[in-house]
Amino acid sequence: MADDVRDLVSRCLDGDQEAMVELVDFYRGQVFGLCYRMLRHRQDAEDVTQESFVRALRGLHTWDSERAFLPWLLAIAGNRCRTHLAARMRRPHTTSLVDHVTDDAAEVTNARHLAEEVELALSNLREEYRQAFLLFHQHEMSYAQISATLDCPLGTVKTWVHRARRELVAQLKHRGVVQEKRHAVRRV
């Protein structure tokens, strides 16, 4: 797989546009997934995903082929997300993904309801915590990889992930979502 990626990257560096499309197709799910969870807005996530790939392709010569490609790519996407979030803070409020969800508990299953609550809780996390949590649990990256991706010490990353979990749990408790498993989910 690593050799396939190196070959693809090499073709991209030669200006092969088919290879570029192939590379984007291969990683678009993971990049878009991160952007979507970070930005909580589909259109913004699409825009930032596209921007991230453009940046990555233009900076391919800076990728160290001895290292894994995905963390490098997700680092670019994460940086673009943070830049986008900073810009969003200066603009009027963007309707978030979670805001689109109707609060019609009777029509949704408990699982979906729980997922929505987790989504909402995620959106309230600090950016660093959220990104570290997503890279660990969604992208299944190791702490070492996350540390390299976010360019911060491994211990810090670990702390962020632990704090993210604690804060998420605290939010779920606060909203009355979390109880012992044998009880039904209660919505506040």
Binding site: H137, R165, V169, L172, K173, V177, V178, K181
Partner: peptide, 12 residues
């Protein structure tokens, strides 16, 4: 149980 619910919800 709270952690279980969190991860169940996240993976759902």
């Amino acid at each position: 149980a709270a952690y279980d619910r969190l991860l169940d919800g996240f993976y759902a």
